[in-house]
Amino acid sequence: MKKLFAVVLLVVLFAVAGTASAEWKPSRTIELIAPANPGGGWDMLCRTVQKALTDEKLVEKNVIVVNKPGGGGATGWNYLKGKKGQGEYLSATSTLLMLNNLLGKSEITYKDVTPIAALQTEWISIAVEQDSPWKTVKDLFEAIKADPSSVPVGVGPTLGNNDHLMFLELAQEFGVEPASIKFIVYPGAGGEIVPALLGGHVKATTIGLGEVLEQHKAGKMRIIGVSADQKLDFLPDVDTFTAQGVNLVFPHWRGIIGAPDLTPEQVKYWDDVFTKMVQTETWKTLIANLGWSNFYQNSAEHTAFLEKSTTDFDKLLTQVGLKK
């Protein structure tokens, strides 16, 4: 009996030692969890990553996208949380992972999962009607300050998202009381906000740049500022907020998280894969087509970034009165 026990122990020890030293590789189909319905930003991120990984043969296994909508991402992330230690499960993430927790909408934080990478960002823009008198964000906020009730601002799909927060932060910069702004919320996001602005039901909107870029280029509405860090080469006629004298750069980034308790080998594997992926032509073309900008951070950088952002957002939410 004792002998048997010793043998078993030995085998177990070898097994453990074996896994620890060898490189990790996915052994099954890789699931990319989009914690939202098809068609949204997370879903698109998963599908671009799927295409880039497959086309560039960066992984040996099959990659599938799984939509698990619900709870502003929480349903998908909780599913991921249940896959402890399994490196084959990845999920899309964004600022909402922090915001939902800070606003008390979900329990889950980045500490419950393994941050793998930040991949891309969209910039947020402020757009107004084509024939509107406002040419800069300053014009807009002065109008709001003078008569908040006359400037309904379209936002969606919910309050407390990036677009909304950025607008509140701008309002603070211009000394406008956040609570006085008249927000009109459209659950259908861009699909409803764009016609609402074209139809004159709202006077301005804070919205992802991609949703209004073509409208602006076609002369149907006017973008008066973007949250980018420098002037965008595909949008030469619009100044960033920084160029307009407001100290605000606001990325709406998206990234990838893995299941909790991943080993350093598993994290290293994905770090290698994503470092290679963001340099491929396939990826570069795809994000350019989608109007996204590169925002790559590896696992370690991303973890540090998440930690800092959480503190910053906490402060901002308290200042603008969304968090009590």
């Binding site: 698109m44 599908r47 671009t48 295409k51 870029l213 073509e214 409208q215 280029k217 076609a218 073309t285 795809l286 087509n289 989608l290 109007g291």
Partner: peptide, 8 residues
């Protein structure tokens, strides 16, 4: 959009 068409 992934195919490079910019609907607008």
């Amino acid at each position: 959009m992934m195919l490079g068409v910019k609907p607008g």
